[in-house]
Amino acid sequence: MSQNKPAPGRALFSGLGVTLRNLFRRAHTKQYPDVKPELPARSRGVIALLHENCTSCMLCARECPDWCIYIDSHKETYQPEGAARPRQRNVLDRFAIDYSLCMYCGICVEVCPFDALFWSPEFDYVETDIREMLHEKEKLQSWVATVPPPPVNDANGEPAKELVAAGKAREKAETAPDS
């Protein structure tokens, strides 16, 4: 008789044990339409646009693998106070994301140099017609309110790059001779 072989029929009883233990544990079911799920920050639900930060640089539209971002803009001249000559700036006319094409890769959020695009955990924006999945900037702006604050850095992790850079700059300023 081999020693590793469990007694025949033992699995029947361990099966009974597992199911009985499960009976007294909380179920995993989420009551979705009644109870909204709590999704972590940066969940890939929808991409929100903070249009004040957008400079129409087109980086996101160009990096988008399936070309689902549409940007129209025009240049405007304006006269800042105390400046010698008028300046030019980009004004965003249209910013739209076609969510029937978007594959939620997040490259646009990564590539945006001005923090105008954010991941929002909102996910229930489905439409009955695929053509209605093209959302303009007003709609994209409305999702900014649902973007949660980023989670705090792990205490044992590396410090944030910004903090490291700021610390170095301060050190430099303190050790430098007063001018």
Binding site: T19, L20, N22, L23, R25, A27, H28, T29, Q31
Partner: peptide, 13 residues
């Protein structure tokens, strides 16, 4: 109900 909870579900709600 029993079957659902034994399988980690809630059953009819």
């Amino acid at each position: 109900k029993v079957m659902a909870h034994m399988q980690g579900r809630l059953g009819p709600m």
